[in-house]
Design a protein around this nucleic acid. Structure first.
Lengths: 144, 144
DNA sequence: TAGCAATAGTTGCTAGAGCAACTATTTATG
DNA sequence: CATAAATAGTTGCTCTAGCAACTATTGCTA
């Protein structure tokens, strides 16, 4: 591993790519008046999958800070897409789940998301996808 | 390209990896009292390379919004690591360059950055690096 | 059982991201 | 030459990120 390799700012390329994706998603959300942000979507997606979970689990699933999750949930509650329910057996916990409107939002936005993912993966094979996954996993696990 | 492939949230993995890297960098900066953020570092690195450039060019080089660059520069000016100079031939432009203290900061932080990059690339080959670069480039260019 | 540590969540703070609206200047076009 | 269009940058706004400090509750342990 020679120096040019090490000094090459791969970090930057990751950041640039992610920003471009995020931007593209947000512009499409806005253009189709979906009235959500990309991160709000990520939470909705996870809530649809897991039905009823705590802030903590949601944070872990989304790789987000608990404080960030707390605030995004707050916005989603205001939009009446999500509701909170204090746990009865452990009164520290707060469960979160989609409202019927939240479920509708998921179903409404989902096709657009699939379409955008397809656009991103254009000209790439499943092997490429596996490679990317593998490399990112190694990097992730390299970092203490 | 079957559905599991398309629906797989690669976006999420990119985001998670980047956050982990960014976090690791920041923690090391803090632990060694470098007194900068990761994005402030990215600007310093670019200013060291390009000596004297405008906000606009800096934004393009770093894939950052001009407004964001403007604000980061402001913080760096407060820290006396960077100085601004209005252009004389085009009075809309503002040139930015490192102060001597800024150059010292670059030289002080640089070894730590190289070390951290090495950590991230542990167990990966130059081929992996090329693959990652290639795939991210394709994704980047797929997006309008 | 009393007291302390651990856990779940919230609030305050600083910083980065990006859009919209604005000023100031330069360039293009009539 | 005058006016419009384009460009560089700043400011205000909302949202996300993450740290520190805080409350409330639960679990552990002497």
């Amino acid at each position: 591993m020679h120096d040019t390799f090490v000094s090459n700012p791969s970090f930057f390329k990751l950041d640039a790519t992610l920003k471009k994706i995020r931007n593209y998603w947000q512009k499409n959300f806005d253009a189709q008046q979906k009235d959500i942000t990309v991160d709000q979507w990520l939470l909705i997606e996870n809530l649809y999958k897991h039905k009823r979970i705590t802030h903590n689990e949601l944070a872990r699933l989304t790789s987000k800070d608990i404080t960030t999750v707390s605030r995004i949930i707050e916005l989603l509650v205001k939009k009446e897409l999500v509701e909170r329910q204090g746990s009865t057996d452990d009164r520290r916990k707060v469960f979160v789940q989609l409202t019927p409107a939240g479920v509708n939002k998921y179903k409404d936005v989902r096709p657009l998301v699939l379409e955008m993912r397809k656009t991103g993966w254009n000209n790439l094979s499943e092997g490429d996808y596996n490679e990317l996954t593998r490399i990112l996993d190694v990097i992730y696990n390299n970092i203490p």
